[in-house]
Amino acid sequence: MCTMIVNQVAVEGYGKGAGGWFDVRQANVAYDHPFHAPLEHALTIDFVNEALGPSARVAVELTPAAARELVNTILTVLERAEVGGFLEESHG
């Protein structure tokens, strides 16, 4: 909680946590002290469902370079899917 840099975004998806698959309803993106990564700060993403309690969480802790590469890769993959006519937008 030392940087306090955190954004929350509502997402529609599914994640597999310690208790199995669950509905993901929110992603929390922060740049702060990680729990596991051997870094003072890391780009952390928690995919959560607050209605299911704190344990409904899929966590990743990334270096800034890895996080940027991940963002670019996601966009690239989505672009290829769109070009191929495979993209299925959210059902809402």
């Binding site: 909680m1 306090m4 955190v6 929350q8 929110q26 929390n28 922060a30 702060d32 729990f35 596991h36 952390t44 928690d46 959560v48 607050e50 309690g53 704190p54 344990s55 969480r57 966590a59």
Partner: peptide, 19 residues
């Protein structure tokens, strides 16, 4: 007050709420 679970899961919830 954030609920109970493993300490890192609870702390992650508090972190997301801005402390």
């Amino acid at each position: 007050r954030a609920g109970h679970g493993m300490p890192d899961d609870v702390a992650a919830k508090v972190r997301a709420a801005g402390g």
